[in-house]
Design a protein around this nucleic acid. Structure first.
Length: 877
RNA sequence: GCGGACGUGGCGAAACUGGUAGACGCAAGGGACUUAAAAUCCCUCGAUGGCAACGUUGUGCGGGUUCGAGUCCCGCCGUCCGCACCA
């Protein structure tokens, strides 16, 4: 056996160069083969790739290479999500221009990605910070503006005081900015919005069609969109009690059935009626100010007591003019949902119950669960929100909830107040319009001009892109564009009077909401898309990325595709046919006795028995092995892809990333695991290079029928082929890899066989040749460099990267005989080997003749024999 | 609180629509080769009883359905993730 080791460091760049020179991963848009679009979420150019990228891109590359071999025209592009705050932060910290910083990072990361050997079409590379990209984004912004899908309006916004910018709700986590971690303030500002709420219904309804998305992601989006059906109800107000004689108050409710259980009304502290009342009521004004100070941080909400302030205003019950309800301002009512006002039915809503219990307003149950006596049914501390029959509700009594809801709606729809119906059926959504304004430099400029006379004037198409000025400084906080007079001051495109540019730039989620479309024709300088091409290449057949983008990025992209459809850039509404969320890469943590974290590279692990212990390499001091956590700089439990590729090679890294855990679960990166993977690389190489010189030439045809051992080998080869193909199709890379381990084990036995059968028997040799030719092609999507090396060593002319996927011979997946496990009373007692076509009677007879069965039955006759075809036999005694 | 996912050896995990539980990998132990080490190869490896053939038991816990349950149903316990005053 040769003991020559496979040298990944020498081999991998060599094959990468050959792939490059022959340009084999470029996709032609006019390729007549069926298309398959594989996409991994493009990276932010932070400067270095991390192991999460390695995992993500390894998975995508397996799919891309597999589909290519299966005869598809595969589109597999890569680009850079290149706008965003880190570039500005770097500018402030290191006095480097965001553009220079970004492009340096792109160059460095591109080199890293190249060293992974990914089958990417680099000719389509895009960077969102490049004017050739954002030019089209600006054009689409203007299209959206014209179509009423973009608008400027006053909005309560989340203001990040550290980053000095507005954040989307999704970017506020526990009341803090998602990047800065600073406590977010509420401010009113004029902002640009995309009208995503126009698609609320459609975005929700079409989730059901996304069958190749993870259930989890669909549920998250469904919740986020948050549809609820209910009734808008107008309560008459006693005008003597309102500050300016206001006549009515509109609330939204999903529980109109509980109207007879109402005890109070409550306004949001931001409600106009609350504001108006507070004008003459200093105590109320102080209460409202206090509420606003509390903020919306999750921690505060959890613990905050329900608090209210009686405005003195009285509302009239819609079914009883003599029934007055007090109107409070309450800290738990949100202005941003419904109308910012509610009626409170404490018996059937926990929040309302907590509230009345504090203010002594009492409660009346109006829904009685079945089996409860209405006469004794009382609510004290826990509201009842289940099913039941109406009680204490006059004409509703005895109805179930749904009937009562319907009855209330029917009656109140006919009533009017101030010429309008008292009640109106409504559907409300939690989803709000997408605020895209950012008070930042390093983003896509919003291409409009503000003119005193003409108002908001779009920049004419011929003048796009509105380029970011290069001469900016970051020595002060806030937006450098705002103080760049030369850039900001421009004549109005319409009237020519002095005007100024919009200085807000777009949220970077806008950039990533259509990059997958741009990849289909990034060369079109005149338009964002070439619709014929985009419509052919889209949707993305398999998108792969982190679950952290389950809501933000994926929902925005779904919106953007719809908006692009309306404005004529594409002809579809759903961008991603298949979506997969991969798990994280996690690693053990290590710390010194003083609590300081140390990196995996700084320590040495030794094991005796089941005990593992670690010491610091430099000093030999003991190191505590801590819990397994997501790789992070703060815990210093990262490993650098460059180091890994340097020591083990890209193939080893890719293989290990795919092998240990199911792809949607976290994978534990461990030194031992990598060793296992690299052992396998060497094993395959040894095996192939040993066998290669003893095999018949490629393409040798031999009649193998009637040759038992050749057939057995061929059966296993084709079974493995079928299993691995199936595993890749279902993205079950870990199980596909397990089959390959087993197959390599078998081939090892074949080659190691002391009789040297595969060398001396031409028929068996031909079967072995086939096995190796298939093995190498099965390994190629995961370990492309090693596979090329093996393919060449097996005497093939072309590249395995361009070879067809082998065809399964279906006849080899079924054998003439089958081994059936035999159970007696559900317990396994033995096996029978019997002809594949044996009848149930034959099987039964064979089974009952078995000694183990007779013994287990204790001489008694079998009561029943259950034969499950091709599976199992169970004897019931 | 609501929603979702999950719970299988020392560890990561397999087990397709209910049909041989633990494939495959890691770790560990033993052995071969070697002057030695690395590398490589072979054997063992859920628990328990037995010299052994083999038996018993075993997929978080308690029930149930079934000839048969890791898988289905009911009730608990635990872990992780997401959402969170949405009326």
């Amino acid at each position: 056996m040769t003991s020559q080791r496979y040298n990944a460091r020498e081999s991998e760049p060599r094959w990468q160069k050959i792939w490059d020179e022959r340009d084999i991963f470029a996709t032609r848009n006019d390729d007549p083969k069926p298309k398959y679009y594989v996409l991994e979420m493009f990276p932010y150019p932070s400067g270095r790739i991390h192991m999460g990228h390695v995992r993500n891109y390894a998975m995508g590359d397996v799919v891309a290479r597999y589909k290519r071999a299966k005869g598809f025209s595969v589109l597999h592009p890569m680009g850079w999500d290149a706008f965003g705050m880190p570039a500005e932060n770097a500018a402030m910290a290191n006095k480097v221009h965001p553009k220079a910083w970004t492009y340096q990072n792109i160059a460095a990361m591109k080199a890293q990605l190249k060293s992974m050997g990914l089958s990417l079409d680099w000719s389509r590379e895009i960077a969102t910070c490049d004017p050739s990209y954002y030019k089209h984004q600006q054009a689409m912004f203007l299209d959206f503006l014209k179509a009423g899908l973009a608008e400027r309006k006053l909005g309560g916004v989340n203001w990040d005081p550290v980053d000095q910018t507005v954040l989307a709700n999704e970017q506020v986590i526990d009341g803090r900015g998602w990047r800065s971690g600073a406590e977010v303030e509420q401010r009113e500002m004029m902002q640009w919005y995309f009208a995503i709420t126009k698609f609320s219904d459609d975005l929700l309804a079409k989730l059901d069609t996304l069958t190749r998305w993870p259930e989890k992601v669909r549920v998250m989006q469904q919740k986020w969109i948050g549809r609820s059906e209910g009734l808008a109800l107008r309560f008459a107000l006693d005008p003597h009690t309102t500050p300016q004689g206001e006549q009515e108050l509109e609330v939204f409710t999903t529980r109109p059935d509980t109207l007879f259980g109402a005890k109070f009304m409550a306004l949001s502290p931001d409600h106009p009626l609350a504001t108006a009342t507070a004008a003459n009521n200093p105590a109320l004004a102080e209460f409202i100010a206090e509420c606003k100070r509390q903020g919306t941080a999750a921690k505060i909400i959890e613990t905050a007591e329900k608090q209210g302030f009686d405005t003195g205003i009285r509302a009239i019950h819609p079914f009883d003019p003599s029934w007055q309800l007090p109107v409070y301002v309450a800290n738990f009512v949100l202005m941003s949902y419904g109308t910012g006002a509610i009626f409170g039915c404490p018996a059937h809503d926990q929040r309302d119950l907590d509230f009345v219990n504090k203010y002594g307003l009492g409660n009346t149950p109006v829904v009685c669960p079945d089996g409860q006596d209405p006469a004794t049914f009382v609510i004290t501390d826990t509201a009842y929100d289940g099913d039941g029959k109406m009680i204490n509700s006059r004409f509703l009594d005895g109805m179930i909830i749904a009937e009562a809801k319907e009855e209330v709606a029917r009656r109140l729809e006919r009533e009017t107040i101030g010429n309008r119906a008292v009640a109106e059926r409504q559907v409300k959504f939690r989803l709000r319009d997408w605020g895209i304004s950012r008070q930042r430099y390093w983003g896509c400029p919003i291409p409009v001009v503000h003119c005193e006379d003409c108002g908001i004037v779009p920049v004419p198409a011929a003048e796009l892109p509105v380029k970011l000025p290069d001469d900016v400084s970051f020595d002060r906080p806030g937006n450098p564009l705002l103080r760049h007079e030369a850039w900001r001051n421009v004549p109005c495109p319409r009237c020519g009077k002095p005007a100024h540019r919009e200085t807000d730039t777009m949220d970077t989620f806008v950039d990533s909401s259509w990059y997958f479309v741009r990849f289909t024709d990034p060369w079109n300088e005149d338009a964002p898309t070439t619709p014929a091409v985009a419509n052919k290449m889209l949707p993305v057949d398999q998108y792969i990325g982190g679950v952290e983008h389950a809501i933000l990025h994926l929902l925005y992209s779904r919106f953007f595709t719809r908006a692009m459809q309306i404005t004529g850039h594409v002809a579809m509404d759903e961008p991603f046919d298949g979506m997969f969320t991969q798990g994280m890469v996690v690693h053990e943590t290590y710390r010194k006795t003083d609590g300081e974290w140390v990196t995996p590279a700084e320590i040495k692990i030794s094991a005796t028995g089941d005990k593992r212990s670690a010491t610091l390499l430099s000093t030999g001091e003991p190191i505590e092995i801590g819990s397994i956590e997501k790789m992070s700089k703060s815990k210093r439990n990262t490993v650098d892809p460059d180091d890994i590729i340097d020591t083990y090679g890209a193939d080893t890294a890719r293989w290990f990333m795919l092998s240990d855990s199911p792809p949607d679960r976290d994978v534990i990166w461990s030194e031992e695991g990598v060793q296992g993977a690299t052992r396998f690389v060497q094993r395959v190489w040894r095996l192939v290079s040993t066998a290669a010189k003893n095999l018949p030439g490629p393409g040798t045809q031999v009649d193998m029928s009637g040759h038992a051992s050749a057939k057995a080998l061929r059966m296993q080869t084709h079974q493995t082929l079928a299993d691995v193909s199936n595993g890749i199709e279902r993205l079950r890379f870990n199980t596909a890899i397990a089959k390959l381990y087993t197959f390599v084990g078998t081939l090892h036995e074949v080659v190691d066989d002391p009789t040297g059968n595969y060398r001396t028997d031409p028929v068996y040799g031909a079967a072995t040749r086939e096995a190796f030719d298939i093995l190498v092609r099965l390994i190629a999507p995961m370990m492309p460099h090693l596979a090329e090396e093996c393919w060449a060593s097996l005497g093939h002319e072309g590249l395995v990267s361009q070879a067809d996927w082998p065809e399964v011979e279906a006849a080899l997946l079924v054998s003439d005989t089958m081994t059936l496990p035999v159970q007696v009373n559900g317990k396994k007692r033995g096996d029978i080997v019997i002809g594949r076509t044996a009848s149930n009677q034959e099987i039964e007879a064979a089974v009952l003749a078995l000694d183990v069965v007779k013994t287990a039955l204790n001489g008694k006759p079998a009561r029943k024999v259950i034969v499950v075809p091709q599976r199992i036999v169970n004897v019931v005694g």
